[in-house]
């Protein structure tokens, strides 16, 4: 290969993802706006912002482990369990401790569950050296089972208004609260991925396990921490989504596994590990949310919507395979 093609290929690849995805998002919005002008209404755009922020957390949860060449299939089960458990704690504790403390306890339990699920995944993947796919498949089935068992399979109602207000409806400086939290988390995650040793180790780990070992870093601890981070991010998504629906739902996270992986991968995180930054879940979440809101507006059959997402997933993975081959 001559120098010239390498340079042009490189610069194309460098700006490619940064340009391609925003263009794709604009194209999707424009396409549905042509069919349904309501797509561009203020309410709908606010809705897109809010939904993308909620979805952003699960996409991030997925990104953190995909960087290390892993997966987290348990994000959906995590969301469901957090939704059910924190709702149960809130409804039980509020009569005893009052609204404020009840909500704090509920949120605290939710985050603790996230830490717990993440720690279990991390323990088995990093220290037990078990394939992350199998580990998270197993924890997915375990915690889905726990979520349906403790709730009896029914939604939990009577959540305090204040909870939905504080974590969903509140607006600060014209920005909905989920978007603000997403922004803070995005900044924090970006910082830890690019500016800290932990972040660098995760990328090296994804590139090659041996290199990370040779470099003398405590690989296992960092890998463990990545799964814990993923668990916590998913539990934040669970809390915010519960505030959105206003009830604890045992099947809140069912469709999230597929969509979160699709968002992270279409956003540019490579399944071969070692690449993908904070932009991947942002673009990915926006694209998937715009698509699904557009399809809803267009009243496309509910069974066909996953077909579109599935096709996009394969397309994104094919692009990824192509990129890797070039490299």
């Amino acid at each position: 290969m001559s120098d010239q093609t390498q340079v042009s290929g490189h610069s194309l690849r460098a700006i490619g993802p940064h340009l391609l995805l925003p263009l794709a998002i604009v194209a999707v919005v424009a396409f549905f706006a042509l069919l349904q002008p309501a797509m561009l209404s203020g309410d709908n755009i606010a809705n897109i912002m809010k939904q993308s922020s909620l979805f952003f957390f699960v996409a991030c949860a997925q990104l953190v482990v995909i960087i290390t060449r892993g997966f987290d299939l348990s994000v959906g089960a995590n969301v469901s369990l957090v939704s059910v458990a924190s709702s149960m704690v809130m409804t039980a504790m509020i009569p005893v401790f009052g609204t404020g403390l009840g909500i704090v306890l509920g949120v605290g339990i939710g985050l603790l569950i996230g830490v717990g699920i993440g720690a279990m995944n991390g323990l088995l993947v990093a220290y037990g050296r078990i394939n992350p796919f199998i580990v998270t498949l197993a924890t997915m089935s375990i915690f889905t089972g726990v979520a349906t068992t403790i709730s009896g399979g029914f939604p939990i109602f009577n959540l305090p208004e204040a909870f939905s207000f504080a974590f969903n409806q509140m607006i600060i400086l014209m920005l909905p609260i989920p978007l603000i939290i997403a922004g803070v988390v995005a900044y924090g995650l970006h910082f830890s991925l690019t500016k800290t040793v932990h972040g660098r180790v995760l990328y090296v780990l994804g590139d090659s396990n041996e290199v990370a070992l040779v470099a003398g870093r405590r690989v296992k601890e960092h890998l463990f921490l990545a799964y814990v981070t993923s668990g916590v991010l998913a539990s934040v998504a669970g809390l915010l989504m519960t505030a959105q629906t206003g009830s604890g739902e045992p099947n809140l996270g069912t469709s999230l596994v597929l969509n979160s992986i699709a968002a992270a991968v279409i956003g540019g995180a490579s399944l071969r590990g070692g690449s993908g930054g904070i932009l991947a879940p942002i673009y990915g979440a926006l694209l998937i949310v715009c698509l699904s809101i557009g399809m809803n507006l267009q009243q496309i059959n509910g069974s066909l919507q996953p077909v579109v997402i599935g096709a996009i997933l394969i397309f994104g993975a094919a692009l990824d395979a192509l990129r890797t081959r070039e490299r």
């Binding site: 597929l258 992986i261 991968v265 399944l271 077909v307 599935g310 394969i314 994104g316 993975a317």
Partner: peptide, 9 residues
């Protein structure tokens, strides 16, 4: 990715 995609489809 392939089989999770074809599964959904």
């Amino acid at each position: 990715m392939v089989t999770i995609g074809t599964m959904t489809i």
